[in-house]
Design a protein around this nucleic acid. Structure first.
Length: 495
DNA sequence: AAAAAAC
């Protein structure tokens, strides 16, 4: 192994003291140059120290703990068939089931030429199918907390020899909802262990809390704290009230040429209803949220990865960690309640050096949420208004209106009603009106749509601005011009 | 104020 003595060329994975079998798997995955978080974290994890690692979304945090952990446990991996010779040495905890699956897939990929055994356990699936692997023994276990506790209580697994603990999306794992389960797991782990925390975001409170779970942690930050990826062009659009959001969304999808996107909403009900709405507008949409069966969630995510589904309407179950290759666009239909979630949501795009777009829809009601996002990510947004045309006659008919009357505030969500009013029951008039919305609008020559970023009258210094390259883009049209352009072109023609 | 995570 090269020890990186005098090194002028670009860094390479072979610079680390990794076993040839691990290096081979890295090579087969097509990676040559480690990312900054990998360059910095891997040696520290190999050295045995605790790490609190934060790096922007899509910069390879998973490999930065998986690779050195594999290296560290490799000498202990037995080829014996005795379960007793295969205790769990390393445990990775994840906040969602899909993320656990993804991390496990990665671990499997990097471990494939080694005798290290790994398994993943998570809820919502038959527990019996997970038991044999645990009973046979695995060195590396990836899990969601609840199901892991279930297996612990059933005596399917023992964690008494876990020397490496990773909290992936650590700030989430340490929040109130997870803390009790996490504490119960920590209670059965050896005190003598390495604890690694990784996330793109750490609030000051969580950062402080995290310290109590680690021993002299080395903090590794490869970017400004809580920063969004530079690869993502972020735009915020405003509408005057909540009822405008659906038609604004359809406009954005059509006029911004959104071909594949994740659309985030704040509730499971909204995920279901918005998906239904988009499907009626003949948009290829599916949803993913916690009220679905796990089988359905996994199938939908697979379909989205394979481009069989173009629009994935998601709750924050899909906000963190998920790596969907070259996914080009994230839309916040609702702004998230936590500013950190904004960073994670938009981080589903612009990964591994690719370019991405993030569009958000805000109402005046969302001012405080937007302000919190600006503050956290150290950016200023000027929302671009998307106002409906003034006269009732000229106003574009929203697909929502066409499909069914809008739901009044406070009225119970009409979930069952929705199920019955399937697209084939639409009247001819409704069909005709919907066809307006489906009309393909070619706006590629309009400067607004080839120049999506709206710079803000900034209060930032030039030095600060230079850290946010997307800021510097001038808007020759002036702030209101794009709005007018959008509305003129967005109007359905009366024919 | 909501989502997620065990049965």
């Amino acid at each position: 192994m090269t020890q990186n003595a005098v090194h002028s060329a670009a860094p390479h994975f072979s610079d680390f003291n990794l076993d040839a079998r691990i290096l081979r798997a890295i090579e087969e995955s097509g990676y040559t140059t480690p990312t900054p978080i990998q360059s910095q974290a891997i040696p520290v994890v190999l050295s045995g120290q605790d790490v609190m690692g934060s790096a922007q979304t899509g910069t390879g945090k998973t490999a930065s703990f998986v690779l050195p952990i594999l290296q560290n446990i490799l000498p202990l991996a037995s080829t014996s068939t005795s379960p007793a010779r295969h205790p769990v040495r390393a445990l990775v905890l994840c906040p969602t089931r899909e993320l656990a699956v993804q991390v496990a897939d990665n671990a499997q990929k990097y471990a494939k030429h080694t005798p290290i055994r790994s398994a993943v356990v998570f809820g919502g699936m038959d527990i019996k199918s997970q038991t044999p692997a645990l009973r046979a023994g695995v060195e590396l276990l990836i899990a969601t907390p609840g199901r892991l506790l279930d297996h612990l209580e059933s005596g399917n697994v023992s964690l008494g020899q876990v020397n490496y603990l990773v909290l992936d999306e650590a700030d989430r794992m340490l929040d109130m909802g997870f803390l009790p389960d996490l504490q119960r797991i920590l209670n059965v782990l050896p005190k003598q262990r390495q604890t690694l925390l990784f996330s793109a975001t750490f609030s000051p409170e969580i950062r402080k809390l995290a310290e109590s779970y680690q021993k002299n942690p080395i903090t590794i930050e490869t970017a400004q704290r809580n920063a969004t990826s530079q690869n993502i062009t972020q735009t915020v659009y405003s509408v005057s009230d909540k009822m405008q959001k659906r038609s604004a969304l359809v406009q954005l999808i059509r006029e911004q040429h959104v071909e594949q996107a994740m659309i985030f909403v704040n509730t499971k009900i909204e995920a279901r209803e918005l998906t239904r709405f988009l499907q009626r507008a003949k948009i290829n949409a599916q949803s993913i949220h916690g009220d679905q069966s796990q089988t359905e969630r996994l199938a939908t995510l697979e379909g989205f990865k394979k481009n069989e589904v173009l629009i994935l309407v998601a709750t924050d179950v899909a906000a963190r960690g998920l790596d969907i290759s070259l996914m080009p666009c994230v839309i916040n239909f609702d702004l998230p309640y936590n500013a950190e979630d904004y960073v994670h949501r938009i981080g589903r795009t612009g990964r591994a050096g690719s370019q991405g777009r993030a569009l958000s829809i805000a109402t005046p009601h969302d001012d405080r949420l937007l302000a919190a996002i600006c503050k956290l990510t150290k950016q200023a947004f000027t929302a671009i208004p998307l106002e409906p045309t003034p006269s009732r006659e000229e106003r574009p008919r929203s697909a929502e209106r066409t499909a069914r009357p809008p739901r009044a505030e406070g009225e119970a969500p009409r979930v069952r009603n929705n199920e019955r009013s399937a697209p084939h029951r639409r009247s001819a008039v409704e069909e005709q009106e919907l066809s307006h919305l489906r009309r393909k609008v070619n706006l590629s020559s309009d400067p607004f749509f080839t120049q999506p970023y709206q710079p803000s009258p900034s209060t930032m210094s030039d030095a600060e601005k230079s850290k946010h390259s997307t800021w510097a883009r001038p808007n020759k049209q002036g702030q209101n011009a794009p709005v007018a352009a959008l509305f003129k072109l967005g109007k359905p023609s009366k024919r």
